[in-house]
Design a protein around this nucleic acid. Structure first.
Lengths: 203, 203
DNA sequence: TTATTATTTAACCATTTGGTTAATACGAAA
DNA sequence: TTTCGTATTAACCAAATGGTTAAATAATAA
């Protein structure tokens, strides 16, 4: 474990909040300093520049969940079991971190280079495509899945989990939900998704 | 049809591109002017401020598809038919406008007030929740759907369509796809989704 | 043609924003 | 206590950015 100075940690936490909500372009160094309750110069003292601070934040936010998710997708478990485990773990994660996916997609879109650069040491995607294909093709033959592309399976699975997180604020407006309502929705979804997905993807 | 001056239209088109890719915060008035090939002062001459220009762009981008989508969701067609029609229409739309959903969600997240303000005259969501519930409940009893919440049905349907659009750039990186590959993926998905969704949501 | 109005531009302006710096406060070792 | 490196701050700075303006140009009506 790296020893992280108290101030440094405060900055990182404040920066996480601001970057998550406002994105790189919308985030203001002064706002981050204010939220951390310290002088703006400290941001540069500890992290040098907005870019570097952002990079640290992005790394902290993704370096756990990204590899974990990729690993889960590649694991050799039987398909149905694997799917259930991913849905469970990932939905729990999303209830706690509802704005991470939108953050990631937003940044990829508005500044692909910056993110591609960071991503390549956060996660090894070198041969993800082929490994995944092999892995899902097996599942198809073993457990009577509809013969569809591995990519489609992954998109269906991830979309079913992630979309409600991305759309969180719109959902709350359109369906007039409180925060509690939303959490409820996600918990119920966690229970219902495996069946929906398995039935949907089966032959 | 409103007559729109040539310059005004050029500005609007350039602004669409820039706002879609960079979002409100990342967009630069100068970049929009450059892309439109006109002097920056023209932006203010025609649209007064960045906020107003953004508002016009947002309206143009959403004022067709939003009500159309809401209407489709509320239509009284038999459930399976309705679902197929939504998937078809909406997937076609997304292939042509892949960055609209991310744009909308992004802006809702980073500046909820601004968007809520615009949205309320773009689409009537007053009693969407109850109308939708009635509508889907009917479908449940009529066509042997699993007894799940209407909200979940809508999220599953929309997520399955929209997520691949939101994730477009990441998908292209992770699966090493060209633009053509991606379009292929979406076209195939359009064919496969109705079956996946209906099987998944059925009892 | 001339007067008048609408359109366009280059040069500015004020504010915001990321970043720096010089001076100060603090803490630990000597 | 003194010394010395670390942490912190207030005051600045330069560049970027949204927005304005006065003058010029084009278009239109008289």
């Amino acid at each position: 474990m790296e020893e992280i100075k108290d101030t440094e940690k405060q900055i990182l936490n404040a920066a996480k909040e601001i970057f998550l909500q406002k994105g790189f372009d919308g985030a203001r160094m002064q706002d981050i300093a204010d939220k951390a309750g310290i002088n703006k110069a400290m941001l540069h003292y500890y992290f040098r520049s907005k870019d570097r601070l952002f990079e640290s934040v992005f790394r902290e936010l993704t370096s756990n969940i990204f590899p974990k998710l990729f690993q889960s997708l590649m694991s050799e478990m039987p398909f149905e079991e694997k799917l259930k485990s991913i849905v469970n773990n990932y939905m729990d994660f999303l209830v706690i971190n509802p704005d991470l996916p939108l953050f990631v997609f937003r940044e990829i879109n508005s500044n692909p280079e910056r993110i591609a650069n960071i991503l390549k040491d956060v996660v090894k995607i070198d041969d993800f495509k082929n490994q995944l294909k092999g892995n899902v093709d097996n599942a198809i033959s073993e457990s009577g899945l509809e013969n569809i592309d591995a990519t489609q399976v992954v998109l269906t699975l991830l979309g079913a989990c992630i979309f409600p997180a991305i759309a969180k604020n719109l959902i709350k407006i359109v369906f007039k939900m409180t925060e509690d309502d939303y959490v409820d929705l996600m918990i119920k979804r966690k229970e219902q998704l495996p069946k929906i997905l398995i039935n949907g993807l089966k032959k």
